[in-house]
């Protein structure tokens, strides 16, 4: 049970504790624990098979957890209360191909007591999708827009998007992101979206969750995450070896990941002191940070206090 109550629970959009799911004897999601503050646009990244889709489906109420629990604004995921406050857009964006766009919106209206027809219709019209067109004949971008319209028309407080941009061309991707973020600005919706397109996450997301084999590796504000990391580069042949056999000059830092060839060696670190010696120092992009954490072995997780669930799992590293 969640220890948080009342106002505190309201400020947390999603709390996941020890969440796991197994199919047969195989665990596809194991011991996921984090907290997502309300009002954020959160990117969920991780390698294939880390159970991102399964986790979103559990939160959306489509699947049951085999272990642990997920709470949406304090309510158990999948329950009648949570179901009304969560919208989920599966990766394949399933819609009834034989319905017209108008009928698809009618479905949203018939199946959701909080439905906002004006919003949904406006969202569809803004993408110049004809209301009388059959869904089966729409382009990928138009389909995504209609599916998003149904999700947003539900007037959810938490929107879950599974790889929403994966199959869209860059222009449509941008339009879709812009339209989604417009609604986020208007309504203060919390968004949790999984994506492979790490490069696109930095203007889209202000929060990041990175899950990998060993559990949650990185969680917190995007700006914060970037600001506590530095990329250090040096010509490989000029790096002296330190007393412990590692490259010298990195002793004071937490090295997240280091790689290099005969010419250059690059390390992503959380600095613990001044940077010096042969190392050149620059600010990393979000993509570099994410890739470094995906490549590392799980030895240096960074969990920001606002995503930390007290009493569960690893310590706060901040």
């Amino acid at each position: 049970m969640s220890g948080s109550t009342g106002e505190a629970a309201e400020r947390t959009a999603l709390e996941v504790r020890g969440l796991g799911r197994q199919y047969g004897r195989r665990w596809v999601l194991r011991d996921a624990t984090f907290r997502l503050p309300a009002g954020r646009v959160c990117g969920l990244v991780g390698p294939n098979g880390a159970g991102k889709t399964t986790m979103l489906e559990i939160v959306a109420g489509l699947r049951e957890a085999s272990a642990g629990e997920a709470r949406v604004f304090g309510e158990p995921a999948g329950g009648a209360q949570a179901r009304q406050r969560v919208a989920f857009l599966p990766q394949e964006k399933p819609l009834f191909a034989r319905f017209t766009v108008a009928e698809t919106l009618r479905l949203g209206h018939e199946l959701n007591p909080r439905w906002d027809q004006e919003l949904a219709e406006g969202f569809v019209r803004a993408g110049s999708v004809p209301l009388d067109a059959k869904v089966g004949r729409l382009s990928g971008g138009q389909r995504t827009r209609v599916a998003l319209a149904v999700a947003l028309g539900k007037r959810p407080d938490l929107v879950l998007l599974d790889e929403p941009l994966a199959d869209l061309d860059p222009l449509v991707r941008r339009q879709t992101v812009a339209a989604l973020l417009g609604e986020v600005a208007e309504r203060g919706i919390t968004v949790l979206l999984s994506s492979h397109l790490v490069a696109e996450l930095d203007t889209l997301c202000d929060y990041l969750l990175l899950v990998a084999e060993g559990g949650l590796q990185l969680a917190g504000d995007v700006d914060e995450i970037i600001s506590v990391h530095r990329t250090l580069t040096a010509p490989t042949d000029r790096i002296p070896t330190g007393p412990d056999g590692l490259p010298a000059g990195l002793e004071h830092h937490t090295v997240v990941e280091i790689h290099g060839d005969q010419r250059y060696t690059t390390a992503l670190v959380r600095p613990g002191g001044p940077v010096g010696g042969v190392w050149e120092d620059s600010a990393p992009t979000l993509e570099e940070v994410v890739l470094a954490y995906l490549a590392q072995n799980g030895s240096a997780p960074l969990i920001s206090p606002n995503s930390y669930v007290p009493g569960v799992g690893s310590e706060v590293v901040k």
């Binding site: 992101v177 417009g182 986020v184 203007t203």
Partner: peptide, 19 residues
């Protein structure tokens, strides 16, 4: 421009604009 307008024209997270 409002955070919404920046979001809709630049695809930038409204929290970023507000920040």
């Amino acid at each position: 421009p409002t955070a919404r307008e920046v979001a809709e024209t630049c695809a930038v997270n409204p929290n970023t604009t507000l920040k």
